[in-house]
Design a protein around this nucleic acid. Sequence first.
DNA 1: CTGTTAGCGCTTTCAG
DNA 2: CTGAAAGCGCTAACAG
Lengths: 340, 340
Amino acid sequence: MATIKDVAKEAGVSISIVSKAFNNYVDVNEKTRQRIFDIANELNYTPNIVAKNLSSKKQMTVGLISSGVLNNNEKDNNAFDIFKGVYTAVSESQFELSIYLIDSLRQKQKSYAQYCRERNIGGAILQGIRIDDPYYKELIDTNIPCVVLDIMTETENGLIGSVSINNSDASREIAEYLLERNHRDIVIIAGTIETYVNTERMKGVQDAFKANNLELDDKHVLYAQFSEQEAYVLAKEYLQRKQPTAFLCFSDLMAFGVMKAVKEAGLRIPEDISVTGFDDLLLSSFTQPQLTTIGQNFFEIGKLSALLLLDLIENRMDEKHVYAQHLLMERESVKTLLNH
Amino acid sequence: MATIKDVAKEAGVSISIVSKAFNNYVDVNEKTRQRIFDIANELNYTPNIVAKNLSSKKQMTVGLISSGVLNNNEKDNNAFDIFKGVYTAVSESQFELSIYLIDSLRQKQKSYAQYCRERNIGGAILQGIRIDDPYYKELIDTNIPCVVLDIMTETENGLIGSVSINNSDASREIAEYLLERNHRDIVIIAGTIETYVNTERMKGVQDAFKANNLELDDKHVLYAQFSEQEAYVLAKEYLQRKQPTAFLCFSDLMAFGVMKAVKEAGLRIPEDISVTGFDDLLLSSFTQPQLTTIGQNFFEIGKLSALLLLDLIENRMDEKHVYAQHLLMERESVKTLLNH
DNA sequence: CTGTTAGCGCTTTCAG
DNA sequence: CTGAAAGCGCTAACAG
């Protein structure tokens, strides 16, 4: 393994010149630089990132801290798309990417701050983290720049950014979509209360109702913890008592559960009951019927968050929250009702 | 940021003792060790992995080099499962994981060997790599231990392992499955010729045919490059001339293409034509009809390959090729024909 | 333009 | 059991 020393010796210069040559310093004789490169090439030399990292006080790696991936529902590979987006953006920068997957099942989980300190991590992207996660708070309170996905942070630390779609807008759109089609008896399958995403989506629904001079009754809001199974159970229960014209679900996964319950109740979608989702999972275009839902581009979200993080690290960000685009994917699970 | 120095000073010992305490050396006074830990805790000290990596000559990180992930078909998230498996195994070891995603579209791609050298990588897992990849050859020729997935390596380097299902066995099984159901007019939708996986699967089919005293006609083998679209085109073409009783496909993706062609030809699956796949993608249980195929546990494959790599690195491997389990997933796309 | 020197934070002999 | 010292491969002043 050739080191900088070998190159320096072979080229008959000091190692600092070699270092400078490789770091594009201008004050290096062009001929010397060329000779150094030739020799480096010949020796198959390439600067050691680990050493570089240690000696330059700069932190050259960013972390992607992701919770719930390992024990995730296999139908949900959004995390993979986010990862690909992050990777793409980071690999085009000078930074290295380090990945830390958390798993509720895994005990010896170390604190995120410690994880970062150990690796000289200069900034992190947090995904799937709950706002009440103590490690999250701890990390935010360090001065490590962070970008969080799908949660809104409440600290006044200048180094926090966040990326998400505009959840309330998206939610309002899909609620209005149902309202325009004359649905009035809508059941909301919400996720986990007190979650940022849930709050925003709730707000969107309420806005849409208000805009139509309607009132959203609490009894029509069911909290299914973003779980397919839970949604299935709640919808099944509900259907034994009443039959709404539509279920508006805060995630596709929950919509799948609802669809199952509806079908088991002997009802047809969308003829008897309409269903909408949120996320646009891969499977959502393959359900029977295909699910009308809100599409998020997770690859893009990953990319945006990495870009935002790099901006934060270099202290030249314009805005701290960036919204990713969303799109109402109109498919087959909603029926237009007759106006009466 | 507390360093080892701070801890040493605070504890009134030399840094070498602190180092030893943290590395579980036995020759450290138990009381000293305890004091060091207490102080470290108090100071929020945690050893810096980068420095550790540099000073100890040992290589503490393994690489996952993965090709074709970024521009992959979105229906295919096997790479993600492999990744999760690798991550799981590596995170339970003392090693760090570094990921390198290649993309045919991406030019400034650096050689795998260089990638490893730059990061002090002590061993790598290669996924989605083609055997004729020049960088692959280069890496294999270094003495860096490697584990390759789904290809068989031909070098005599003692530090190469490989992991895959037993492709010829699996292929034979699914061919026999069709044969047992009295299919005799079978068209093989093969992948890319000269590919390890393809060769093995071909062998399996041939074995099954031979065992039944049948001959496989070259005219019944169509090479679709593992592409859904290509398979669709070839099957469509073929169906204009002849109508086999079954299509045996070397990947689920190609099976999807075939299914589309069959349906477009106005034929029913499996009533008119049976179809089988290979891989068991998530979608394969959601197609109409559900696809009978060979299931691979990619998470397990990832885990196995990481374990094998760690073994190789520590020079205590028993075998160089490990087979992962496969499973014939019997679903709805094959019909049993009447014996005549 | 180039070389010297002092680290980065840690591990690892080698003495004591 | 403990400490001093050399060094991992590189960067970054600071002189010249």
